[in-house]
Design a binder for these strands. Sequence first.
DNA 1: TAAAAACATGAAACACTATTCATGTGAATG
DNA 2: CATTCACATGAATAGTGTTTCATGTTTTTA
Lengths: 199, 199
Amino acid sequence: MELLVKEPKTKRGFETLNRICDSAKKLFFEKGYFNTSINDITDGANIAPGTFYIYFNDKLNLYKYLLLQFSYEIRKSISLATRDCKTRYEKEYNGLKTYLDFIKNNQTAYRIIWESQYVDAQSFRDYYENFAVRYSKGIVEAQKNNEVIDIDPMNISYVLMGISNFIGLKYVIFDNKDSYEDVVADVMKILENGLFIHK
Amino acid sequence: MELLVKEPKTKRGFETLNRICDSAKKLFFEKGYFNTSINDITDGANIAPGTFYIYFNDKLNLYKYLLLQFSYEIRKSISLATRDCKTRYEKEYNGLKTYLDFIKNNQTAYRIIWESQYVDAQSFRDYYENFAVRYSKGIVEAQKNNEVIDIDPMNISYVLMGISNFIGLKYVIFDNKDSYEDVVADVMKILENGLFIHK
DNA sequence: TAAAAACATGAAACACTATTCATGTGAATG
DNA sequence: CATTCACATGAATAGTGTTTCATGTTTTTA
């Protein structure tokens, strides 16, 4: 597979690459991928148009590169925040809270992930299928442990991803709410009896 | 507000308008809004480029017009399918099944609704907020009736919309599954104990 | 410090797209 | 059947965006 980025070799190069990425994130968030031209990006990064091509073959590669970065970051955040949780319930609780905080602080990520459905359908699919497979593994463990009801773990994964995404859509993207404690509590009330088994 | 479409007066006019809409639906589904030019649309409809402007002021108006149509159709389908349901549980069951069948038969609708986030953010927001408000009203009724647990009905609405959407994403868009009986059953198992009150 | 490698420039070539409009055709009306 | 209205055409215009490349500058290497 073609490399997404042409890695710089010097400090100056890394700084320019960062400026390109920062400019792109800002513009993709504000105007979307298709309404952002390479000229817009280079203007925002204070570089000449041609400089863009030192680092990326085209706009699509830059986009895929950012998507991949976000997908790492988001998984890492959740993984760190739920590492020490004793129960699956606790894992879901912290996972949802962390997800909402992440997209509050990285609204670009939310937009870029969903827009990928139209920019690069395969990346979009990879992103969610990948996420779901990892999710399912955790669910299977919890089921073995008799913490979670015995239905198809893939169904559970997509149900939980759907809830997170739409709660995020409403309270982060639409309403830009400050805190999500109460919302998370409501969601967990549903899951408490619907998904989890009380020993 | 500006009219979305310039209504034709004759049979011939309606036929041309339909050809434009059909061509656009097909192309928006295959390539997305931004990768579809007006020339692509008129080519697909077997008309000259200029003819497009007899019916629409620009591509955006055509898009909004299609979005509005789908939003009516999807609501009508669900409303018809759940009209005679006795319980809220039954309503949710049939609603989910109908939604999945609808987007299976109108995959363009799913794509167009989500893409609106990037084409016309206000329309996207209107679509979901509107849907959620109507949904909430039904939930409030069910809560009065002691069928559904007492948490914020807006939270319940977004949870349920999130589930439908992501189950649809997985089994309609990704997997193109034939039938959704088993998936719907799994989802209802979660809701049965999580959302509904057993009398 | 000389040579090489990395990085940066921006004008120019090329491709594509939206939109207009003068002209023309088909259908309905009185 | 002549007039009018609705609809259709497609060449031309104007604008935008991508990408290349010859040239120049900075940094690293030997």
